[in-house]
Simulated scan of single mutants.
Amino acid sequence: MVPDRRALPVVGFVAPSGSGKTTLLRRLTAALQSRGLRVGYLKHAHHSFDLDRPGKDSYEIRAAGADQTLLASRERWALQMENDRTGEDPDLEAMLARFERDRLDLVLVEGFKHAHYPKIEVYRAALGQAPFYPDDPEIIALATDDPPPVFPHPPVLPLTEIDALVDFIFSQARL
């Protein structure tokens, strides 16, 4: 069964590494928050990561074999789970299902370029890489300051105009 995303709009950002996705998302998140939205963020990491470090209690217990480790403080908490399907990318729908939907208005996703969901491609000609949009019909816009290299192309949004990106997301997500 596919979850109903109407209750929680999801918009992704895809591009090769080094294209400025995270920088753009940081600016975009602040702009969306200033308009009163509660924003969730999901990032696909292509490598292993830890929330803590060797020598810390939670790290040592996880390294000893705990399948789930929950770190909690007065300000925040984080649940770290061991992936029992090592070698497989996480499933976008499964990760989105972990959010507390009633506490968010929108989820911004960084990565998951092969998943089926609405995405905005960040394109920089200086990287010398082919764009994704000609092969991905789910790319709904191109965020770039360069001319689109392939025609036809989705709507173009200037990278430097955060308000235009916010307006586009509002229209697409029906916020």
Rank of each mutant, 00 (worst) to 15 (best):
V2P: 11
D4C: 10
R6H: 14
A7Y: 11
V10P: 01
V10R: 01
V11A: 02
V11R: 00
G12L: 00
G12D: 00
F13L: 04
V14P: 00
V14E: 01
A15K: 00
S17L: 08
S17F: 07
G18A: 11
G18Y: 09
G18R: 10
G20Y: 00
T22F: 02
T23Q: 05
L24W: 00
L25P: 02
L25G: 03
L25A: 04
L25M: 15
R27P: 06
L28Y: 06
A30C: 09
A30F: 12
A30Y: 13
A31P: 14
L32F: 05
Q33T: 15
Q33N: 12
S34D: 15
S34L: 13
L37K: 15
L37N: 06
R38K: 15
R38L: 12
V39G: 10
G40R: 03
G40W: 03
L42S: 00
L42W: 04
H44G: 00
A45G: 04
H47L: 01
S48K: 05
F49V: 04
F49D: 05
D50W: 04
D52V: 12
D52L: 11
R53S: 14
P54I: 08
P54D: 13
G55T: 13
K56L: 13
D57P: 12
S58M: 11
S58E: 10
S58P: 11
Y59P: 14
E60R: 15
A63D: 12
T69I: 13
L70I: 09
A72M: 05
A72P: 00
S73C: 06
R74S: 15
L79K: 03
Q80M: 09
M81A: 15
M81I: 10
M81S: 15
E82P: 05
N83A: 09
G87A: 02
E88L: 02
P90D: 02
L92G: 06
E93P: 06
E93R: 11
E93C: 08
F99A: 12
E100Q: 14
E100R: 14
R101S: 14
R103W: 05
R103M: 07
D105Q: 08
D105A: 10
V107Q: 03
L108T: 02
L108A: 02
E110N: 04
E110T: 03
F112V: 00
H114T: 08
H116G: 07
Y117F: 14
K119R: 04
I120C: 04
E121S: 03
R124L: 06
R124N: 08
A126T: 11
L127A: 07
A130I: 09
A130Q: 15
A130K: 14
P131G: 09
F132A: 10
Y133Q: 05
P134Y: 10
D135A: 13
D136Q: 04
E138N: 05
I140H: 01
I140F: 00
A141Q: 02
A141W: 00
L142N: 01
T144P: 13
D145Q: 13
D145W: 07
D145E: 13
D146A: 14
D146E: 13
P147D: 15
P147K: 11
P147C: 08
P148Y: 10
P149C: 13
V150L: 13
V150Q: 12
P152L: 12
P154H: 06
P155R: 10
P155S: 11
V156I: 14
T160R: 15
I162Q: 12
I162D: 12
L165P: 03
V166H: 09
F168N: 07
Q172L: 05
R174I: 03
